[in-house]
Amino acid sequence: MMPDTSAYMVAGFLVIIGGVAIYVLWIFTRFINCAIRLNALKELEKEKKPHGE
C-alpha cells in the first residue's frame, strides 16, 4: 500500500516554486526602485551643474 502523502507534495512544491517567485519579484521591485532613484539623482546632477561651474 502506498501512503497518501500528496498534501505534503503540494506543500513542498508550493514552497520551492513560490519561494523562487517571491525572490524574483523582490529583485524586480528593487531594480525598479533603483532605476527611479538613479533618475532622480541624474536630475539633481543636471540642476547642480550650472550652479557649480
Binding site: D4, T5, Y8, M9, I17
Partner: peptide, 12 residues
Amino acid sequence: TMGSVQKVFYFH
C-alpha cells in the same frame, strides 16, 4: 514506501 511526497526530492 514514501508515496507522492518523494517527488519533492528532485527540486529539494
